[in-house]
């Protein structure tokens, strides 16, 4: 099987995720960018799993854990964004300037 295509796809998604995270102002979009990065991780894991093809299937188990925990993190993230939005009526990351960086 051809492993490289999957790794390139993963690398592209990961880079897009980092770009989105650094360039977007809206907190929800930032969250989406992180999801892209985690999708890249999952593609890598599943592709490597198919490559090694071991009976223990560690790569797929790992991917399932990543998916589950990513879902939980999105829940936490949306709750926090909702809280910020309620107090400031804005979901923009660059307006968070009460605490000096």
């Amino acid at each position: 099987m051809i492993l490289t295509q999957f790794l390139v796809l993963g690398a592209v998604l990961f880079s897009l995720g980092i770009y989105g995270l650094l360039s977007r102002r809206n907190a929800v979009t930032v969250l989406l960018a992180v999801e892209l990065m985690l999708a890249a991780v999952n593609i890598n894991l599943v592709a490597f799993e198919a490559f090694w093809n071991t009976p223990a299937a560690h790569g797929q188990i790992f991917a399932i854990f990543v998916i589950t925990i990513a879902a939980a993190e999105v829940g936490i993230g949306l709750a926090i964004i909702l809280l910020v939005f309620r107090n400031r009526a804005s979901g923009n990351v660059d307006e968070l300037d009460l605490l000096k960086w």
């Binding site: 790794l7 993963g10 990961f14 995720g17 995270l21 907190a27 930032v30 969250l31 992180v34 990065m37 985690l38 890249a40 991780v41 890598n44 894991l45 592709a47 490597f48 490559f51 090694w52 560690h58 790569g59 790992f62 990543v66 993190e73 936490i76 993230g77 926090i80 964004i81 809280l83 910020v84 107090n87 400031r88 990351v93 968070l96 009460l98 605490l99």
Partner: peptide
């Protein structure tokens, strides 16, 4: 709120970077 959001965004970013590294370690 601000403390929490900053912590969250950088926390998940670091997790994603860590996982990307781990996926290659496994691979």
């Amino acid at each position: 709120n601000e403390a929490s959001l900053k912590f969250f965004i950088l926390g998940v970013l670091s997790t994603a970077v860590l996982l990307y590294g781990m996926s290659f370690l496994y691979g």
